[in-house]
Nucleic acid binder design. Structure first.
Lengths: 223, 223, 223, 223
DNA sequence: AATGAATGAGACTTCATTCAT
DNA sequence: TATGAATGAAGTCTCATTCAT
């Protein structure tokens, strides 16, 4: 049982993760269809055989990458929500900034999630869209809860949720495209204002700025 | 001789356009990477040789398709803007509805423009994004003009323009994905409200509804 | 329709057949699993692309080869049977010699049919065996017909048919293995005697020799 | 120290044999080319490393398997030959039934010997055929001895031997292919009759049946 | 003796593009 | 102009074998 030891398993896990990370990098640079398995293994300095020892296929690896990213983003939303001292504007701000911060931390993965996943293949387009719908439906429920207690102005929650989700899309795309190291979170304030006003949630400018500072600090420390 | 060559040229143009249309259909069904040139020529009932007589390559054809679509969408915006009787809420509504109506008219092209173009290749991603930036910069200038005259609340016009553009994205994606013949323009009202509120443009609900009815009528007749 | 002409189609047929023949040669030399598509195209001096233009896959080509051979052998049996002047010993002799002659004419195909087809894959083993069973059942019916009219001694026709079919197998295998240009039909006389005696069909040696001479002459001329 | 090493050696032998047996099972189920070394080691619950400790290569293992089987079959022929009370029909019957019984006892090995070995590769085909020739030459000598003393009708002993050997082939192949637990030895009587008549060896039906019963009893007990 | 991660040659196949007719 | 046979680079993946532990 030499090779079944815990140590060996750990080394395997590390290598597997390393391949995933390398693949993410290459995918985000060249695009899924223009990235060959050869490209990945050369970047990772491993053999083709090793690649297929750890992953069943190129598509399976990509799927795993995508699922991982999606999960990571869901976790951040859960984490930043301040359910104890509930305030609409505060929570909105925290979630928006939380999301932008995540994109900033995982630029490569973000590119895969937002851009690449769209063009992989029809099966994948569905998968991608299911994940969007899921997070959208969370937002939808959120909106519905608001409506009962506050003066939020939303004719149709489902539509509003999709609009809200979409409003991130080009902002992040723009940031992904630009090579300069702009801070995505800098756009956060504008996105918060836009969204809060759209939903007619009352807020004080200074509070929003305060919330942003707070949550960014929390996130940076927790890293 | 002149006439003959002109007729010949016309016949060529028609065939060329037919190939473009057929390709659009196939691309939107199977995705760029899963559409082979053979697929296109079979659907169009022409030979591979013909294809390459009219187009230099598969990618060139796709580029042309993309440029055409983009132009078409820009035209509609220009067309619906009512510059004579300027009203912020009216023009906003007209442009939003005009855009949604266009997507509805060209579902296939929309899929190519929004989904496929993203995954083709990095070069193409840039191209796609340039087009987004262009229309975004139009919106940006619009916002700037508003600001000087109205009580619009926008901290940063460029960012706001991107947010505004993005807010269409998932709404349309959702519609593209769903097979049911939902009317995309039905979501138009919600999108108008969301955007107008986000920008703190004052409006009357009944007016918006009126504007929508008007512009849809105009567009349907102009078809 | 330049290329859809009859002439072009003919050239295609010839090329297709040429690939089949070349493949048969290579398969019979190196065995199915040790023959790569590359081996075949190199021997045939064509490109890989051409191979796949004419055949869907290596396996499909092999199947076609196998089906062709099987058909050819069935035809010879039908051809040599003398139904007008029916004589048990004569027909037996004619069929046996006809078969041996066929193997002699198609040494490569014979190797594929008898040896290679066995090891290709389970699906193929079934296919191969179905063909054996079919020709065996023809023999079986033959035996049953004999029994009603003659003093043939067969306890079980199905078993006897299989035994009869098998009795060719190593004789031909031996001939396939030996590089010397031995005449397979030389063993024909012995095989006839063996089979006729086994079935207790009465015959005169000199007649058998005469039948053999006759049928070989016929076959050689019909070539 | 002596005893320990002897015990160790024994343990090694047992494991080696176990791998051989497992491999035989897998080969006969999936065919040589569709059986990977991984398949074998998984079925045997050993590591790939172990496999290569005991065998130099997949082909070498198969060769050993084949040689073993061949030897086993030869032994049975020697065993059942009743040289003391020599009778042509008796010995023929005993050998035929002995062989069929062996196939019945070792269905897996039989499949390898008769079917798989043919398709492995050309080198192997030669090997396989050498073994056939060897047993065929034994029969050939047998026939020659008969001829001097009996009224056996054989024009050419070598050919006759091959025919005789072949006559088993499809009978056994048929049995291998059919999943039903038919008794192969049931066909034995028919094969005896066919062969004896073919060689014009005189016999009594009742004697043959008696010989069959006898030898089967012997073999069953000796198991 | 045993383990199984690692290797990489090579297999099959696809498909954008060319070019002779 | 039109045709489609021909090309071959490149892609994905398998698997027998090795070797450090």
């Amino acid at each position: 049982m030499y090779k079944t030891s815990k140590e060996t398993q750990e080394r395997k896990d590390v290598k597997r993760q390393f391949i995933l990370d390398t693949a993410a990098k290459v995918f985000s640079q060249k695009g899924y269809h223009y990235t060959s398995v050869k490209d990945i293994v050369e970047e990772a300095n491993i053999s083709i055989g090793s690649f297929y020892f750890y992953f069943k296929s190129k598509e399976e690896l990509f799927t795993e990458l995508f699922v991982n990213i999606t999960k990571k983003f869901q976790k951040v939303t859960d984490k930043v929500l301040d359910v104890d001292h509930f305030s609409l504007s505060k929570n909105f701000t925290r979630v928006i900034i939380g999301n932008l911060w995540m994109y900033e931390q995982h630029k490569e993965l973000a590119k895969i999630m937002l851009i690449e996943a769209a063009g992989v293949n029809p099966t994948f387009q569905k998968m991608r869209f299911d994940s969007i719908k899921e997070s959208s439906s969370t937002v939808e429920n959120w909106f519905k809860r608001f409506k009962t207690n506050h003066a939020v102005n939303i004719p149709d929650e489902k539509t509003a949720a999709l609009i809200y989700e979409g409003s991130f899309y080009y902002l992040i795309s723009d940031w992904l495209e630009s090579d300069q190291a702009i801070k995505l979170t800098d756009s956060g304030y504008a996105l918060c204002i836009y969204s809060l006003q759209a939903l007619k949630i009352s807020f004080e400018d200074s509070d929003i700025r305060q919330y942003i500072t707070e949550v960014l600090e929390e996130l940076t420390q927790s890293k």
